[in-house]
Design a binder for these strands. Sequence first.
DNA 1: GCCAACGTTGGC
DNA 2: GCCAACGTTGGC
Length: 153
Amino acid sequence: MANYWLMKSEPGEFSIDDLRARRSRTEPWDGVRNYQARNMMRDEMRPGDQAFFYHSACEEPGIVGIVKIASEAYPDPTAFDPQDKHYDPKSDPDDPRWFLVDVKFVRKLGRTIGLRELRGHDALADMVLLRRGNRLSVMPVSAEHWNYILGLE
DNA sequence: GCCAACGTTGGC
DNA sequence: GCCAACGTTGGC
């Protein structure tokens, strides 16, 4: 059964519009350096799963679009590149520490569903995103929450 | 294994 | 820019 996710990106680094502008509309979700987030990408995501694209650390944090998981997990090449800002010398190409999946643009939402708005809905109170101190950049979303949020659009 | 110091995330 | 929350590191 397909699962649902939420993936954060700083729009100043990589936005939903950047993804849409790619010729393939597909991009490797690189640079994740958190073990929980890695484990979800590596062990639980499947091609065809859908995810909310979330803009963080910006003027209006919130859900801006939908993407589809477009590959199995594979080693994050940026971890091996000393020139890359996400370089991790402890990730051995023969025993990679960091993984990623490709994501493909599906659509932008008609409007941004802001973090503040999400917090206002009791039905969403136990979303991982809304938990105190949550810092995960990749997290699961229940089917109930997924459908509820789409209903807000 | 404990825990203080440090770095990062991300909302505000 | 501030700062709360949390993960990681490393000395012991």
